[in-house]
Design a protein around this nucleic acid. Sequence first.
DNA 1: CGACAATGTATGCGGTGACAACAATGGTGT
DNA 2: ACACCATTGTTGTCACCGCATACATTGTCG
Lengths: 193, 193
Amino acid sequence: MPAYHHGNLRTTLLDAAERRLREDGAEQLSLRELAREAGVSHAAPRRHFADRQALLDALAEAGFARLDATLRVALNVAGPEFVPRLHAIAAAYLKFATDDAALLELMFAGKHREGAEQIAVAASVPFGLMDALIVQGQEQGVLAAGDSHKVGVVLLATLHGIASLINGSLLVPELLDGLLETAVDQFVRGARP
Amino acid sequence: MPAYHHGNLRTTLLDAAERRLREDGAEQLSLRELAREAGVSHAAPRRHFADRQALLDALAEAGFARLDATLRVALNVAGPEFVPRLHAIAAAYLKFATDDAALLELMFAGKHREGAEQIAVAASVPFGLMDALIVQGQEQGVLAAGDSHKVGVVLLATLHGIASLINGSLLVPELLDGLLETAVDQFVRGARP
DNA sequence: CGACAATGTATGCGGTGACAACAATGGTGT
DNA sequence: ACACCATTGTTGTCACCGCATACATTGTCG
């Protein structure tokens, strides 16, 4: 006999939401449907998420944490040299972005609720990773000295843009690998001393 | 006394939709609300758009046409030399993208309806513009010879990525100008012979 | 002039998010 | 041990939406 209280409804909802997000996209995500799937009443999710947007924001925040972890692993595997590290982080970013297109869109949607400072903080972490990598490239003499943040943003923008074009079906995924290589190579050539 | 027939409801709806899209975003766009605004019954829009997605697709298609026109004007104003033309088209793209963030998102959303070949065709036009510009740069000897399409995509991706980051509030708009310059300069350095 | 296609209307269905009032549960302080 | 109370889930309701169907009006063309 099921207890009156679910136990950990919040986590259950978030997990189910992330799955449905990947399968059907953010538009199709319905609080009532998640409630049905979790076996609770249609108003139960309201105890854990003030409204639909709060749920989406929580998904986005978790997404940034997962992205951060993914990129860190890629960097660790890549070793100490700058260029391989750059290739690794770029490939990892694009894999994440194309595997979880809807989640990425949510993360970078920007139309979050007001008290969404947590998201901004979570989002700054991957930016920091890029930044640190650029600084390392400058220290190793592979990149020209200068405003590392600006350079890092251009790099991130290029990767993010490629992901957007592929996720928007304006590019066929088969081009990804070649495009990634071209982009990274051009970046290194463009930013070297 | 208003006539039974509106006259040009389709155009009226599209115009109102584009305005509300800019003001409130695609999520808030409601067919019933547009109908109210146009002074017709809530089922009238159905005669012109099979469903909500069809309306969004029409907006996206019109958006691509307007983007194309905007970019062409920028190129014409810029004169014959490659680098100024590159700066001009980049600035024009980013202005369009940040002025009409929601529209741009719609255009590149990719989740269009099945018979959306028209959108794919409309979308290919700006790509063609980029491509032609790259070819011109190669002919003028400013860019290295090679796969112009791949290079053009990387350029477009960088611009689109910058727009995405700004529209997502992950970058403050004040950085746009400096970032744009950095991106274009790095691109030219990275793709030159 | 009459049939017909195009366009707008009236009405209803199922689904959704938000809200409020109520009920069960489990921990806490005395 | 027990009353108290914050937490969490339930039930019921409301307004809104997209979509569908049957019907009304209009202009056009044979």
